[in-house]
Amino acid sequence: MDKNEISLLLLLRYFGYDEKSVIDMIDDFKGRLMIQKIVYISLVGGVDIGYSFTWNKHGPDSSRLTRAYNKILNSFMDGDRDYTEYEFWRSARRSLNKIKPLIVDNPLEEKGISKYEWLEIVSSILFWSTLYNNIDYGVEKVKELKLEYKDMIEPAKNEIVKYFPAMDQVLIV
């Protein structure tokens, strides 16, 4: 495994996903999308593990990250467990601690929003907000693009600003 794949596994492990969970996520379409969203939210939170993102209909997307899934599965099948010898550096853990509830918790679950949908809404708002340095623009753009979530976008914005207080002003990434 290369350093980006190891970093990806460390990131997922940090958020509570063990090897079996990672395999299950990679084997499932929505699971793969969840990985994309976790990595993107972590990137905005200050932990860059080497993947760049563009927009697609499911939110922020990294084609390089998609290719990493197969490499990781092949490594697991080959018995490669080198990643278990590593830990995230302290500064990364500090950054991730600040945003961990945004990724791990789902405050909209009671309203029927799945974990995947929560991460899609949050990462989509972050994507457009960081692109245009304006959370209000990000919120309006997501309302326009994701009509099925329009009633959940404002509550998601309120959660985002708890963990990214600068989002209420101007954000530069």
Rank of each mutant, 00 (worst) to 15 (best):
I38N: 00
I38Y: 01
I41Q: 02
S42W: 02
L43T: 03
L43F: 11
L43C: 05
V44Q: 05
G45S: 10
G46E: 12
G46R: 04
G46T: 06
G46F: 13
V47H: 04
I49C: 11
G50Y: 02
Y51E: 03
S52Y: 07
S52H: 06
F53M: 10
T54P: 04
T54W: 01
W55S: 05
K57M: 13
K57N: 13
H58D: 15
D61G: 04
S63C: 04
S63T: 12
R64A: 02
T66S: 12
Y69A: 00
K71G: 00
M77P: 01
M77D: 11
D82E: 14
T84R: 14
E85M: 09
E85G: 09
Y86M: 06
E87Q: 14
W89S: 15
W89C: 13
R90K: 14
A92N: 14
P101I: 08
N106V: 10
K111R: 14
E117T: 04
W118K: 05
L119H: 10
I121R: 11
I121S: 06
I121A: 10
I121T: 08
I121Y: 12
I125N: 09
I125H: 13
W128H: 14
S129P: 05
T130E: 10
T130R: 06
L131C: 05
Y132W: 05
Y132F: 10
N134F: 02
I135A: 04
G138S: 08
G138P: 07
V139F: 02
K141P: 00
E144A: 14
L145T: 01
K146H: 09
K146S: 01
L147Q: 11
E148M: 06
Y149I: 00
K150W: 05
M152R: 10
I153V: 08
I153C: 03
E154G: 01
A156S: 13
K157A: 09
E159D: 13
K162H: 05
F164K: 00
P165N: 08
P165L: 04
P165D: 12
